[in-house]
C-alpha cells in the first residue's frame, strides 16, 4: 500500500492567552491536543465536532496558516510542518482551501478574473491565452457563466460566491482541498447544489477532501470516513457506516442522536448532553468527556483513554467496551 496523501501525527496547537510583563503567556488554550489521522488520495475525510473543538485549527495548521506547537504534518511522505517559507511555496499549490463565509473569503475589490488568476500566476501554471482558457474552464467547472469574470464579488449571491471560492481552490490544481465549513453558511437548497458540485469535482478530478463540518446530514452524504473531535482530540474515527451504524464513543452517540430523521414514524432515543464543553484552557483530567458523559465511571475521571481499534479502520477513545446503555437508558 502506498503512502496516504496526508498524514497528521500527534498534532498539538496551543495558543497563549494574555501575557505577563515578562512576555510569558498567562495561560494556554489547548486548541488541538495530540491528534492523528490520515487522508488517502481521492477520498473524503470529515472532521466533525462542536464549535470550538479545534476543527478549524487543524485545517489552518495543515495549510500552514498557523505554526503548530508539536507534531508532524506529512504530505506525500514529506514533512511540511517544519520547512521554510521558500520550500513551502510549491507545497502550497497542492493544498487549497474553501472557507465558510462566502462574503469575507473574496477580496471585495478584486474582480473574479483576478481572484481566479492569482493562484495560477503565483504557481506559474499558465499565462496569456492559456490563462484565459483556464479561467473559462474554471468558470465552467463551477457552473458560472464565463462572461461574469469581469464582475466584483458583491454582484453574486452567497452560493455563487462560494462557487467562486471553489474555483479559486481548483485553479491551483490541488491534490487536497480543505473545506472549512464550506457549506455551513448557505441555505439548504444552495447547500445541496454546492455539495453536489464538490462531489462531482472530486470524482472528476480525483481530489481528496478534508471536510470540516458540524452538519452531520451533509457529512453522512459526503464522506467515506469520519473523525469525531471533542475538545482538541479525536474521540472516534472510522468508516461512515461504522460511525453512523455502530458508534463506539458516547459523544458520537449523542452527536448522532441530534441528527433529525426524515421519517416521522421512527422514534429515536435522543441523548441530550448536559453542561457545556469544558474550557480548552484547562481541560479536565482523565477522559475529556467525563463531565458530560452519562456512563462515566471512576477510571474515566482519572485516566485519559487512548484510541483503541474496535474493527479494522474503526478506532474509539473510550474505556468502556459496551456503551449500549447509553441508548437504552436515555429518555425518549
Amino acid at each position: 500500500m502506498s503512502n496516504p496523501l496526508l498524514q497528521v501525527n500527534d498534532l498539538v496547537k496551543h495558543y497563549p492567552v494574555g501575557r505577563t510583563l515578562s512576555g510569558r503567556p498567562k495561560s494556554v488554550v489547548h486548541a488541538v491536543d495530540g491528534l492523528s489521522f490520515h487522508v488517502d488520495r481521492g477520498e473524503t475525510l470529515s472532521l466533525v465536532g462542536e464549535s470550538g473543538c479545534g476543527k478549524s485549527t487543524v485545517g489552518r495548521a495543515i495549510l500552514r496558516l498557523v505554526d503548530i506547537t508539536m507534531g508532524q504534518i506529512v504530505l506525500d511522505g514529506r514533512r511540511i510542518d517544519d520547512i521554510s517559507q521558500a520550500s513551502l511555496h510549491p507545497v502550497r499549490r497542492r493544498i487549497q482551501v474553501v472557507f465558510q463565509d462566502p462574503f469575507s473569503s473574496l477580496n471585495p475589490r478584486m474582480r473574479v478574473r483576478d481572484i481566479l488568476a492569482e493562484p495560477i500566476r503565483n504557481f506559474r501554471l499558465a499565462t496569456g491565452q492559456d490563462l484565459e482558457r483556464r479561467l473559462g474552464e474554471l468558470m465552467d467547472m463551477v457552473q458560472l457563466p464565463r462572461d461574469s469574470l469581469g464582475r466584483l464579488p458583491h454582484e453574486f449571491s452567497g452560493g455563487q460566491r462560494q462557487r467562486i471560492g471553489i474555483a479559486r481552490a481548483l485553479a491551483a490544481k490541488p491534490d487536497l482541498i480543505i473545506c472549512d465549513e464550506a457549506v455551513s453558511a448557505l441555505d439548504v437548497s444552495v447547500k445541496a447544489q454546492v455539495v453536489n458540485l464538490l462531489q462531482d469535482l472530486q470524482r472528476d478530478l480525483g481530489l481528496a477532501l478534508l471536510f470540516i463540518s458540524h452538519d452531520l446530514a451533509i457529512v453522512e452524504h459526503m464522506t467515506q470516513r469520519i473523525a469525531v473531535m471533542y475538545l482538541g482530540k479525536i474521540v472516534e474515527i472510522g468508516e461512515r457506516r461504522q460511525i453512523f451504524g455502530d458508534p463506539r464513543h458516547p459523544y458520537t452517540v449523542a452527536l448522532m442522536s441530534a441528527l433529525p430523521t426524515p421519517d416521522p414514524e421512527t422514534r429515536r432515543r435522543r441523548v441530550t448532553l448536559v453542561g457545556d464543553v469544558p474550557s480548552p484552557i484547562d481541560p479536565p483530567p482523565g477522559c475529556r468527556f467525563h463531565g458530560r458523559c452519562p456512563l462515566a465511571g471512576e477510571t474515566c475521571r482519572r485516566i485519559e483513554p487512548d484510541l483503541r481499534q474496535i474493527a479494522p479502520g474503526h478506532w474509539a477513545a473510550c474505556h468502556l467496551d459496551d456503551i449500549s446503555a447509553m441508548t437504552r437508558d436515555a429518555t425518549v
Partner: peptide
Amino acid sequence: DQPYVDAAIACGTRTPMIIFRH
C-alpha cells in the same frame, strides 16, 4: 484576519503582494 487574506496565502501569494494587493 480576513479569510480572503488566508486564502491568498494558501494560494501562494507572498507577503509583499499580500500587502499591495489585498
